[in-house]
Design a protein around this nucleic acid. Structure first.
Lengths: 123, 123
DNA sequence: TCAATATCTCAAGTATCATTGAAATATGGA
DNA sequence: TCCATATTTCAATGATACTTGAGATATTGA
């Protein structure tokens, strides 16, 4: 997935709010199983309508996704969307300037060791 | 450099505005030589006071830096700040989930080939 | 069907942010 | 010193965004 400028703007806007940034962190840690809207709200200290507002915002921005599961709406991180945002930053803000990306690539090697070995290394 | 949550929020907020996002792209392409405030404003179609407002915002957020050069204030990309933001995203949103970082790492390998070879590959 | 649970939607109020134009500041050259 | 250039600061306006609480919708089980 490759982000347009307007999609990147939406994604940055979504992450520029404390409650929403925390929601994303909570949901990434929760993995693909996800968490119900209520559970996310509790985790970040938001009211039910506040949680709904911010979760919708994040979903519109393509950073999380939702599915109904009985009475609950279960939200989970959208890995593609998050990855696309990181790629946007790297392509846009790195292009021609390895000083920016190199340390980030090191983080990737660290936190995603097996994947990094498969995909990032041409050596 | 390791970003605190509040610094990441500032950085995301700074990048969530069309004029500012374009300014960052222009300044990254300009490299460390940078561009005067007026040149950046012209490049993105902002008024002089508008350019000043947005450039200050980006500087406060740690994404660009400035120096006076005769009559001009020259702005340039802050590679450390941009890199720290990418790292924040990777650490926070990747941790335990290589699906997110791996494609990004591939971009790093692409756009920062020499650096990636030095720093990202443990093989 | 009724009640309970989970979530969403809506409207009102408040706060934050972006834009505009005018005025202030800093610099360099005549 | 005086003027022109480059940029910033300030105040006013309009636009967006966040929060809150009340009410609406959807789902399940009795």
């Amino acid at each position: 997935m490759k982000l347009e400028e307007s999609q990147a703007l939406d994604a940055f806007g979504a992450l520029s709010q404390e409650t929403r940034l925390r929601m994303v962190r909570v949901l990434v840690q929760a993995g693909l199983d996800g968490l119900s809207a209520g559970a996310v709200g509790d985790a970040v200290g938001a009211s039910s309508s506040g949680a709904s507002f911010h979760l919708s915002h994040l979903e519109r921005a393509g950073l999380i996704q939702s599915r109904r599961e009985s009475r609950s709406i279960v939200y989970s991180a959208n890995y593609d969307g998050l990855s696309a945002l990181i790629q946007f930053l790297m392509r846009d803000c790195c292009s021609g300037h390895p000083e920016i990306c190199a340390p980030a690539a090191a983080v990737a090697a660290d936190c995603c060791a097996p994947a990094a070995k498969e995909n990032a290394c041409a050596c």
